[in-house]
Design a protein around this nucleic acid. Structure first.
Lengths: 228, 228
DNA sequence: AGATAGTGTGTGAAAATTACACCATTAAAT
DNA sequence: ATTTAATGGTGTAATTTTCACACACTATCT
């Protein structure tokens, strides 16, 4: 039979959102020791009878009220002393989501006092090794931006090219040339130009586009998940 | 306090080597149930007081006698029923090594009957979900080949450009153009041409080259480990 | 009518990628 | 000494991709 240890698995989630031209992540305020009152990534312990992928979804839901994100594992942290109370190995996941003013963030367990969006710049110190986890995750999506349809999960269904560009700039942390960016994006052929325009802006309204997931998959003929 | 579960962590290793123009991986023959007598990736259980990175090194050593490889985590497998006797979550690592006829592979535990190199083509069915683990790892290094100095860990210290090319071809599973390949490799500037030539071949001896790790790091100005 | 703020567009230079074929050198066999 | 077998080593032109760069247009607000 298998030996038994007092080892614990957990999941930690780095959830990216994009709002007001800024890239943000989801943090919770902890309501339990250790690190009570600290800010942390949403994370909790994996149950016996659920896969880690399932656990990631459940835990995120319980801590933030968010459901049905497409979560992707990116690294496992297994230093001996990363948790002050015992051995905890954690599998880190990221997900990307459109921040939607409507959707309220409300933890369904007492473990988190609240959940909220925080800009990725000027992040405060986080509980445990969560700052390191965040950095690792941020590097990961930065790299994947080039070969995974990451950006479109962060934008509303209909978006302008300028919004898309400013998202790229936020993730890559660099300015891009407008003409070259548009040329390249459009040349891929997976953006569908709509007959609609932006509304409610006090300047010339921009055309709206949609991401065509099927064309993307055909073009890159991967299953959009090739990197596992 | 932390809850206690009968959960077990393990490590599984996909160790690549290159010999006689063929890419190979290291397998063991299991000497214990479950899957007794099956072929499997080297893998075993993580102890309480060691980090997963340390565990990976230790376990590989115990099962194969190999030491001091540079092991890199690539994915964690956490399906509920991946192990028939209980819940086992496994963190998979890969490493690359020069196969060296001299170095004998000898397990230092009874758990593995023997360890040996097997070509990555025509792999037999492996124990547990190890076939899936292998595939995931192979895809990973295939992708990383372009931005990590993976190839040079598989070759002897001094190598010819033809050897380097045939390694690329083995990993990418495609033919490459000789002139373009050489031009490109040399243009990077991290290959150092030696004054030596190949010996003992019955045809024109090729120049030998060395990989210059420092120049590589300077050129790509990453710490060679950016992908974590 | 003018100010404001962001939209939308093209061209040329430079760099990188691709396709492609033949002679040179060596050791072994005759 | 000659031949053979096997691999080493090299250049050029066409194409594609990347990069740098600036101005006129449109809608709204005052």
């Amino acid at each position: 039979m298998l030996p038994t240890f007092d080892s614990v698995f957990s999941i930690d989630c780095v959830i990216f959102g994009f709002e007001a031209g800024e890239l943000k992540i989801l943090l919770i305020e902890r309501n339990e020791e250790p690190f009570k009152d600290w800010l942390a990534l949403p994370g909790y312990i994996v149950e016996q009878d659920e896969s880690i992928d399932d656990a990631a979804e459940r835990i995120l839901y319980e801590l933030t009220g968010l459901r049905d994100l497409h979560m992707q594992q990116f690294h496992t942290f297994g230093e001996v002393n990363r948790h002050p109370q015992g051995r905890v190995i954690t599998v880190a996941y990221y997900a990307l989501i459109r921040i939607n003013g409507q959707k309220e963030l409300r933890p369904v367990t007492q473990f988190a006092r609240k959940a909220f969006w925080h800009p990725v710049n000027e992040l405060p110190k986080l509980a445990f090794d969560h700052s390191e986890i965040f950095n690792t995750g941020f590097n990961k999506i930065r790299r994947r931006l080039n070969y995974q349809p990451i950006a479109f999960e962060l934008l509303p269904e209909k978006f302008t090219l300028t919004q898309l560009q400013s998202l790229y700039e936020a993730i890559l942390n660099m300015k891009l040339d407008k003409r070259n960016f548009r040329k390249k994006m459009l040349s891929y052929g997976f953006l569908k130009e709509l007959d609609e325009k932006q509304k409610g802006v006090s300047y010339r309204a921009a055309k709206l586009y949609k991401f065509d997931r099927r064309k993307y998959a055909k073009i890159f003929h991967n299953d959009m998940n090739l990197d596992k």
